[in-house]
Simulated assay, not measured.
Amino acid sequence: MTEKRPFRLPSARLVAIAAIAGLVCGAGVVTIRHIWSEGQVQGAGVAQAGLCEGTASRIASLKPLLKGQVAAMSANERPRIVPLSFKGPDGAAMSEASFTGKTVLLNLWATWCVPCREEMPALNALEREKGDDRFEVVTVNIDTGDDAKPQTFMGEYGIDALKLYRDSSMGVFNALKKEGLAFGLPATLLIDDKGCLLASMNGPAAWDSPDAKALVDFAKAK
């Protein structure tokens, strides 16, 4: 099978398309589930502050690396763990705790999102080169329905280093939207090995670029 080739990344037009697509996606979902009660959320905030102790200084050191192809990433301004919920390649439920001990570049995408489709080969290349027991590119597909469409896309585009994480309910998108982290697709978070948010961005990027690799090397360093 001939491998399909992507268009050039990034582009302002693709970013605009992604933002519009994300707004449509968000408008189509009217129900957001509340997992914690108010008291539990307050308790979680205290726990997060303890787990993310020292994250602020690490983010300050990371800021000079948010340049060039990853200049659109915004450093997190307050220590926190972002709640995540989706399914793993085997269909098992996963959360942010599933990746404790591993730095993660979390990316939300859909087959109907043109900028998402165009940046996937770069994400695949980043995982192939940098992925190990201390770092993973976690791409979460939010297409509704079964796994057939994203699986077909990944096969046609030669996406062979990335695992198929899924959330057909789009709940993870809405959770990040509520946190002010996802306004469209693609949406990407850089999360450290304790599950603490380091930086985030909306829109595509050249994840196989030297700028992206330098950022990942810094984030995964102990």
Rank of each mutant, 00 (worst) to 15 (best):
D147P: 08
N124S: 14
L162Y: 10
A110I: 00
L62M: 15
S85C: 07
A47G: 01
T100R: 14
A97G: 06
A60G: 11
L123Q: 03
D146P: 08
L105N: 03
G145N: 13
P83F: 00
G50W: 11
N107K: 07
T100G: 14
L84D: 01
E156I: 06
P79Y: 00
P64E: 15
L66C: 09
K102N: 04
L84H: 02
G155S: 14
A93K: 11
G50M: 12
K102Q: 12
G158I: 01
K149A: 14
P150R: 00
E127M: 06
S95V: 05
D143M: 06
G131N: 07
G145Q: 12
L84R: 00
Q69T: 06
M170L: 08
D132K: 01
V140M: 05
V140A: 07
P83D: 09
N76Q: 13
Q69M: 13
A92I: 07
K87H: 12
L66G: 06
C116F: 07
V82K: 05
L84P: 01
K87M: 11
F153A: 03
S169G: 08
G50C: 08
R58F: 12
L126T: 03
A122Y: 01
F86S: 04
L51P: 03
L62A: 04
D160N: 15
D147M: 12
S98N: 10
N76I: 04
C113Q: 04
A49K: 06
T144A: 15
G50L: 14
S74M: 06
G45A: 10
I81V: 15
P89D: 11
F135N: 03
V82I: 14
M94P: 03
T55N: 13
K163Y: 03
C113D: 03
I159R: 01
D160E: 15
G88E: 04
S95A: 13
L106S: 02
G50H: 14
P89I: 10
L126C: 11
F153S: 00
L162T: 01
D147T: 15
T144N: 10
S169A: 11
C116R: 04
S61D: 14
M154V: 03
E156M: 11
A97P: 04
A97R: 13
K130E: 11
P89C: 11
V104W: 05
L106D: 04
S168Y: 05
E53V: 09
L84W: 03
R80L: 10
G145V: 11
N76M: 09
G88C: 10
E129C: 01
Q151P: 02
K163N: 08
T152K: 15
A148I: 13
L66A: 10
A92V: 08
S61K: 15
I159F: 10
L66S: 06
A71P: 10
T103S: 06
M170N: 02
K163V: 01
K163G: 08
M170V: 07
N107C: 07
S74L: 11
A49M: 11
G155Q: 13
A122K: 01
D147N: 14
M154D: 05
G88R: 00
P79H: 02
C52A: 13
R80W: 03
